[in-house]
Amino acid sequence: MIDISRIPEPLRNPNNCQKDLIPPFKYSYGYRPSLAAGIVFCILFGIAFFGHTLQTIRLRRWTSGLLAIGALTELIGWAGRTWSAECPYNQNAFLMQIVTLIIGPVFFTSALYVLLGTFITILGRKYSIISPRMYTIIFLSCDVISLIIQAAGGAMASSAAGSQGDTKLGTNIMVAGVIFQLVAMTVFALLSADFYRRSTKFGMPAEYNRILLALFISLAAIYARSIFRTVELIEGWTGYLMEHEAYFIALDGALMVVAVLIFLPFDPARTIPKVYRATEKKESAEMSDFSTV
């Protein structure tokens, strides 16, 4: 633990904007964040937020709303990193990005849970081990728990890091939250694969398969990101992954862009009504054939 009285005055103020390194005090990140990366990701998540917000207003779908909230959370986080590029010691900017970027993917997984539950409702309970209602209760509850754990741990760790204190407790809490999220996603992935296996015989329109493919790609991106964050946090705040921004850009920022932007060209909010109408027509035709017999 560093004696607070020895910390230079510019670093004691959480609102400071000290740009240059003050040895032996490292930047809060272990490096000075890239301004270019911050701007690029703010633009990308801004596009995702605008697109999904527009769909939320137009079509009033839960999936669009959750994706929009997740994109906004990521946007705030990368705005914090952009701020940190100019003020790398600033504790408020550091807290702003670490809390939002650790919890942002929770909203994306929630959208995936709701999306699969919607498809089960449309196709029928026979294609799923558990009911759509149970998907909502079980997995959204897991997301809320994960969100609370990660946010609490992130706030504790960032506060300690900003004051050059011990980040171990907060980091351990964050790791627990991410691992809990990984377990929930693993179970969801297995159930999703089983649903896909059962429903492939149904003969749904091409839009159906495209949306399911987008779901699996998004889930894979979030899953890979969660593994990265788990390893990163286990290594600690002075670990190799934590102190090299390239890994964070590639294995967090870029993966989350894929997870949310893929649902702009393959938008479930537009496709689900089409799938529902196609299902109704198929069922009506089958009933008509049966009555003829």
Rank of each mutant, 00 (worst) to 15 (best):
E245C: 03
A37Q: 02
N16F: 06
M287A: 15
A151T: 08
A71K: 08
G153M: 09
L147T: 10
F94E: 05
I272W: 04
F263A: 06
G154V: 01
A85S: 15
T171K: 05
G162A: 04
I262D: 02
N92M: 01
P24C: 07
E232R: 06
Y196A: 13
L95I: 06
F50I: 14
R270A: 14
S159G: 15
F202M: 11
S110M: 15
R32E: 13
S158L: 01
R58G: 04
A254Q: 04
F228Y: 15
F188W: 08
G154M: 08
L190W: 00
F119M: 12
L241M: 14
I262F: 02
R12I: 03
G177I: 05
L251H: 05
A160Q: 14
V275L: 10
L182W: 00
Y31F: 15
T56C: 06
Y276S: 15
L190K: 00
H244V: 00
Q55G: 03
Y135G: 05
Y29Q: 14
V106Y: 01
M204I: 00
A85G: 15
P205R: 09
I234H: 09
I122F: 08
I43G: 07
L116K: 13
T171M: 05
Y247N: 12
L212F: 10
A160K: 15
T238M: 04
N172Y: 07
E74K: 02
P205M: 06
E280T: 03
Q150H: 07
A160V: 08
P14S: 10
F290D: 04
L116Q: 14
Q181D: 08
W78G: 05
T238E: 11
S146A: 15
A85K: 01
R12H: 06
S218C: 13
V178A: 11
A254D: 09
M174Q: 13
F108P: 00
Y247E: 01
A193V: 04
T238D: 12
E207A: 13
F248V: 00
I217M: 05
L251I: 02
I129N: 11
I173S: 07
A157K: 05
F228I: 03
L241Q: 13
I173K: 03
L112Y: 07
A36M: 02
P88S: 11
L213H: 05
S226D: 09
